[in-house]
Computed example of a mutant assay.
Amino acid sequence: MRQEDDKAAADDAAPARIDRSEEGGALTCRLAGDWTTRTVGQVDGQMRELLKKEGVERLHVDLSGVRHLDTAGAWLVGRLTAEYEQNGVAVEITGQSKAASILLAEVTPVAKEPDVPGGERSGFWPVDILAALGRSVYEARNDLLYGMHILGATISGAQMKLGRKHAVNPTAIVNQIDRMGVGAIPIIVLMSAIVGAIIAQQGAFQLRYFGAEIFVVDLVSILIMRELGVLMTAIMIAGRSGSAITAEIGSMKMREEVDALTVIGLNPVGVLVFPRLVALVIALPCLTIVANFAALAGAMTVAWLYSGIAPAAFIDRLRTAIDLTSIFSGLIKAPFMAMIIGIIASVEGMKVGGSAESLGRHVTASVVKAIFIVIVVDGLFAIFYAAIDF
């Protein structure tokens, strides 16, 4: 039945025609019939011949005889006019209906796209470098503002107001803690133990020349507790959970699920970002504690096997090497790093476009930016601790 309808529609379609006349340097093209997908093949060859015509100073396209015009026909007309305009020819289109004018306005810019990719360049490399730097600074400023918006919208979107029941969804938070926290324990333990063992072996190897191998306990404990424990954990969480957050939110953005949440009256940031952000703030300090224990266990094992420092002696020296200041100086950083990772991952996820290439690009940007900012923040904390003698 559908084939019969298509055949009947094809029989009813008027053939597309071009009547052209040339007077002096003015070329007039009068189009007639139906310029649709079914009929434009009849005139495509003639339109291509017109594209090659030379010596034209003015082009007049008369559409008064066109009965029906769809995207295919409008594209042929737009291609013709755009080609002549690029060659400096004055182009005039008359006789079109209101619908045809709208269609031509939408299709013609596609035909006018420049052939040279990459946009306009100055050709002077110092200017190009400064322009790229300016764009980067402007993008960083936009990311900062959007991150503040994400943070504020997360709190407001959670609807944490007095008198409201079920303001926070504990199930979603616990589920995210299980995925980001409990699921990351094996890799955190493995990597921390290996790093702790390497530091202990290298420290003992160097201190052996001075007969001070016992001080490897001080070296490992202070370095792990104050710096490396939380830093390694944050970097691994940025690569593991940060990329997952960006991919999840980005894929929802691609499938327009984020817009659907807005349509049904929900705040997408409160629904998607809040549970993940809370889960990160809870999970990262806990994982930091696990990483500290794993790194000290790896260091204790290597110190016992490599330097002959018994576990009892290691623990006894550990009690004098560290205090509460060393322990809390690392744990204080964890919530801040968790917020940074979650906000950056959410911002990049919300910026994903409609293509898989955009998703991959923003996932990569999320991980790189999060790791970079985490390292910078760790350095700022170190400077602050030194300034207050903490």
Score class of each variant (00 low, 15 high):
67 R>V: 01
67 R>G: 02
68 H>R: 12
68 H>K: 05
68 H>V: 01
70 D>Y: 09
71 T>Y: 05
71 T>V: 10
73 G>E: 07
73 G>V: 03
73 G>T: 05
74 A>R: 04
75 W>G: 01
75 W>A: 11
75 W>I: 01
76 L>G: 05
76 L>M: 06
76 L>N: 03
77 V>L: 10
78 G>K: 05
78 G>A: 06
78 G>L: 05
79 R>F: 00
81 T>E: 09
81 T>W: 13
81 T>Q: 11
83 E>G: 06
84 Y>P: 08
85 E>V: 10
85 E>H: 07
86 Q>C: 00
86 Q>M: 00
88 G>D: 02
89 V>Y: 07
89 V>W: 10
90 A>H: 01
90 A>Q: 08
90 A>D: 12
91 V>G: 13
91 V>I: 02
91 V>P: 13
92 E>A: 07
92 E>W: 01
93 I>H: 06
94 T>W: 01
95 G>M: 03
95 G>C: 09
96 Q>H: 12
97 S>V: 05
97 S>Q: 01
98 K>Y: 08
99 A>N: 10
99 A>I: 00
100 A>T: 07
101 S>L: 12
101 S>R: 15
102 I>R: 10
105 A>P: 07
105 A>H: 11
107 V>A: 06
107 V>K: 05
107 V>Y: 04
108 T>K: 13
109 P>E: 01
109 P>Y: 01
109 P>N: 07
109 P>W: 04
110 V>P: 00
110 V>S: 11
112 K>L: 00
115 D>F: 02
115 D>A: 13
116 V>F: 07
116 V>H: 04
116 V>P: 05
116 V>K: 10
116 V>D: 05
117 P>G: 08
117 P>R: 03
117 P>L: 14
118 G>H: 11
118 G>C: 10
118 G>W: 10
120 E>Y: 13
120 E>H: 04
122 S>V: 09
122 S>R: 09
122 S>C: 14
123 G>Y: 04
124 F>N: 14
124 F>T: 06
124 F>L: 13
124 F>C: 04
124 F>Q: 04
126 P>R: 10
127 V>T: 08
127 V>P: 08
128 D>Y: 08
129 I>V: 14
130 L>Q: 08
130 L>Y: 09
130 L>R: 11
130 L>N: 10
131 A>G: 14
132 A>K: 08
133 L>K: 11
134 G>T: 06
134 G>H: 15
134 G>D: 14
135 R>A: 15
135 R>M: 12
135 R>F: 10
137 V>L: 15
138 Y>I: 12
138 Y>G: 06
139 E>P: 03
139 E>Y: 07
140 A>L: 15
141 R>C: 07
142 N>M: 14
142 N>A: 13
143 D>P: 03
143 D>C: 07
144 L>K: 02
145 L>G: 02
145 L>S: 02
146 Y>S: 06
146 Y>E: 12
146 Y>V: 00
147 G>W: 04
147 G>M: 12
148 M>P: 01
149 H>N: 09
149 H>L: 10
150 I>V: 15
151 L>C: 04
151 L>D: 08
151 L>I: 04
152 G>M: 09
152 G>A: 11
153 A>Q: 12
155 I>A: 13
155 I>W: 09
156 S>T: 13
157 G>W: 05
159 Q>K: 12
159 Q>D: 11
160 M>W: 14
160 M>L: 15
160 M>N: 01
160 M>Y: 09
160 M>R: 04
162 L>P: 02
163 G>K: 12
164 R>W: 14
164 R>Q: 09
164 R>F: 11
165 K>L: 14
